[in-house]
Computed example of a mutant assay.
Amino acid sequence: MSIEAGSKLQGKVTGITHFGAFVELPGGSTGLVHISEVADHYVKDINELLKVGDEVTVKVVNVEKDGKVGLSIRKAVDRPEREETARPQRARSFQRSGNGSHRGGNKPRATISFEDKMNRFLKDSEERLTTIKRQTESKRGGRGAKRG
């Protein structure tokens, strides 16, 4: 049986390593499911999800010239197509004011350009660096103090 990229096959887990699982495919060939291709979430220990002898459905991700077969379990699962949706808007701005309060209410606000955001970030960053520098200098004894 010819194994082609994109095809879904049934296989049997024949070995498990810290980086993935080896799956025997129809026709006797073996492929590797990398640990990142086992589930949609982060997998710390593959042994929590797979055991030797498990029957799994895999999708062939790639077949290299030297015969190595890359497989994916998570891509073999059919999911309904999601519509392209815009990212959800944030509920409130993260502007800081001197008294610790934030903007109240759900008033629509003007959109801020990227350049304005960058300028505000640079100003805040410089102020923080100045404060940190002042604090560390005072701990060392101030300007021009001899280190001993």
Results as ranks from 00 to 15, higher is better:
Lys68Cys: 01
Asn106Phe: 07
Asp78Thr: 15
Arg79Phe: 08
Glu137Lys: 15
Ala86Gly: 08
Ser113Glu: 07
Ala76Lys: 02
Gln10Glu: 14
Ala86Cys: 07
Lys65Ser: 11
Arg87Asn: 05
Glu127Arg: 15
Glu64Ala: 15
Val69Gly: 01
Lys133Gln: 07
Ala39Trp: 05
Val60Gly: 00
Gly27Trp: 05
Phe22Arg: 00
Ser2Glu: 15
Pro26Ser: 01
Asp124His: 11
Tyr42Ser: 13
Arg82Glu: 13
Phe121Cys: 08
Gly141Ile: 00
Arg79Asp: 06
Gly98His: 07
Arg79Asn: 07
Val61Gly: 01
Ala76Phe: 02
Arg109Glu: 11
Glu24Gly: 03
Asp124Ala: 13
Ser93Asn: 09
Lys75Ala: 13
Gly28Asn: 03
Lys107Gly: 11
Glu81Ile: 06
Glu55Lys: 11
Leu49Met: 05
Leu25Met: 07
Arg143Asp: 12
Arg103Cys: 08
Thr14Arg: 08
Ser36Met: 09
Val33Leu: 00
Lys75Ser: 11
Val38Gln: 00
Ala76Glu: 02
Leu9Met: 05
Leu50Met: 03
Val58Ser: 02
Gly53Met: 00
Pro26Cys: 03
His102Val: 12
Asn47Phe: 03
Arg147Asn: 12
Gly98Pro: 05
Gly98Thr: 09
Gln135Leu: 15
Pro88Gly: 05
Arg147Thr: 12
Asp54Glu: 04
His102Gly: 13
Val52Ile: 15
Leu71Phe: 01
Val38Phe: 00
Glu126Met: 12
Gly148Leu: 13
Lys107Ala: 12
Ser101Val: 08
Lys107Leu: 11
Lys139Asn: 13
Gly100Gln: 00
Leu9Asp: 01
Gly27Lys: 06
Asn119Asp: 11
Lys8Gln: 10
Ser29Thr: 09
Asn47Leu: 08
Gly141His: 03
Glu37Ile: 04
Val63Glu: 01
Leu9Ser: 05
Arg120Cys: 01
Phe94Tyr: 13
Glu84Trp: 11
Phe114His: 15
Arg128Gln: 10
Pro80Lys: 13
Pro88Ser: 07
Thr30Trp: 00
Asp66Leu: 10
Gly144Asp: 04
Thr14Tyr: 01
Arg143Glu: 14
Asp116Cys: 03
Ser72Cys: 10
Arg82Lys: 14
Arg109Pro: 03
Thr85Leu: 12
His102Met: 13
Asn62Ile: 04
Lys12Pro: 06
Gln89Ala: 15
Gly104Ser: 14
Gly70Gln: 12
Arg92Phe: 08
Phe114Asp: 14
Glu64Cys: 04
Glu127His: 15
Leu122Gln: 08
His34Lys: 04
Tyr42Lys: 14
Thr111Ala: 10
Ser125Pro: 05
Lys68Ala: 07
Thr136His: 09
Ala145Lys: 15
Ile16Ala: 05
